[in-house]
Amino acid sequence: MSEAAGSTGNTLDGRLALRQLVGTMRLDLRRSMLSPRSLAVYFLAFAPLALVGVWALTPFPTDEFDGPQDGSMVFTVLFQLYIRVSVFFSGLFLFVSLYRSEILERSLHYYLLTPIRRELLALGKYAAALIAAAATFVVGTTAIYLTVLSPWGTAAMTNYLFSGPGLANLIQYLITVVLGCAGYGALFLLIGVLFRNPVLPAAALWVWEAANPLLPSFLKHLSVIYYLQSLYPVPLARGLFEVVGDPAPMWASIVGAIVFITFVLGVASWRVRKMDLAYGGE
């Protein structure tokens, strides 16, 4: 008899759990990376690259910019828009539909008929979508960053990256974008399992995040964008789209994000465990 078939005890065998997690991620990764909605994610991640590419190829008055460090400033403002639109909506498209799309396709029962704890199933599905989103946005962010630095030539760019703060900044942006995917992803997973029609809660979340600059200081702390902005290596200039407020320490942002994601996944798992599967008319 094979190993999996023999594991029927109450205690969750760690190795078995890991194999089940990997099995779930394997199935869901294909769904997150190759389904029609992943095209929307790729568009959101790479459309800004096309825009920046045109900018990089267009001659501009060099006296307005001192060099790659100024390009980096431009990137910071663009990155804010990238997080607010591309990352936000990609998270929405990928994570809200983790369960709902399978209910629509009438294929969720295949998962629910396997001997996997539903908490583990939720984690596996979340992890697969996160890997898909994070990989896409890490590539997108890196490509946009390098394209923004490219007009000053390879030598200046290399110098800025490896002898200046360029590479450290890039790594910090990448951490931010991954945490953005993780944070928004966890929220959208929760919205997806709690609400049959998630349009209103998702729209409310967007308004909340967008209204962050207008909120009192203590309410600012209750938004994802606040913690993400605290991770930016280059401070933002003040403006209508930019969050104004005391940034949280970097460690607090990262630890807070992890605690928050764990909590949200816990609630989502509890909801999924109690869920009745009914393929009604969606």
Binding site: R37, A40, L81, P198
Partner: peptide, 19 residues
């Protein structure tokens, strides 16, 4: 999926300002 269609409408009508 109806909600996704709703999100797409919202994104296209109000996301243009970010572009």
């Amino acid at each position: 999926w109806r909600p996704l269609a709703g999100f797409a409408l919202l994104l296209i009508f109000f996301g243009g300002v970010f572009f």
